[in-house]
Every structure is written in structure tokens, then in C-alpha cells.
């Protein structure tokens, strides 16, 4: 269930990042998630589809790399 809240946090960072004119429609959002975060990537994808977000993010997919440890980092965006 925490995926929804975490996705909202992610989107608030992304909304800020994509506001710049140089960034177009985002295709991929790259994330690194530590195993200790107990995040289920499929639930996060679903949450990301449904949370309100900037129009440049509406077609974006999350690319989630699961790593060891407790990191939870937005690595970058592709457009």
C-alpha cells in the first residue's frame, strides 16, 4: 500500500523536473529501489498510472531496477 504514497512523492519531484521547456513527453522514468524497501514494482507501475501528474508524464513508463540495500532513488528521465 505504501507504493501509492511513494509514487506521489516521486511524481512531485517529476512534476518539478518536467516543467522545464527543454523536456518533452517523457517515455521512461528510471528508478533504483533497494530490496529492503519492500516495493512491488507492478503495484508501483499501477499507482503511477493512476496518480494525478503533469501531462508530460502521462505516457511515461517506470523502469525499476531492484538493487540490494535500502536506496530509493530517481535516477533520471528519457523523453
Amino acid at each position: 500500500m505504501h507504493e501509492i504514497k511513494l509514487t506521489q512523492n516521486l511524481v512531485s519531484i517529476l512534476d518539478r523536473e518536467v516543467a522545464s521547456d527543454e523536456i518533452g513527453m517523457v517515455k521512461v522514468v528510471h528508478l533504483e529501489v533497494g530490496k529492503l524497501r519492500y516495493i512491488v514494482p507492478e503495484i508501483m507501475q499501477t499507482a503511477f498510472r493512476h496518480v494525478p501528474k503533469h501531462e508530460k508524464l502521462t505516457e511515461a513508463k517506470l523502469e525499476i531496477e531492484v538493487i540490494t540495500g535500502g536506496e530509493f532513488t530517481l535516477k533520471g528521465i528519457e523523453w
Partner: peptide
Amino acid sequence: MAFKVIKEDILSEN
């Protein structure tokens, strides 16, 4: 395709 590196902790706002 263009890429922007961000590297931000997703819980940074909290």
C-alpha cells in the same frame, strides 16, 4: 531520445 540524470532520493520531500 534525450536523457536527464536526476539522482534524487524519492523521500527527500518527507
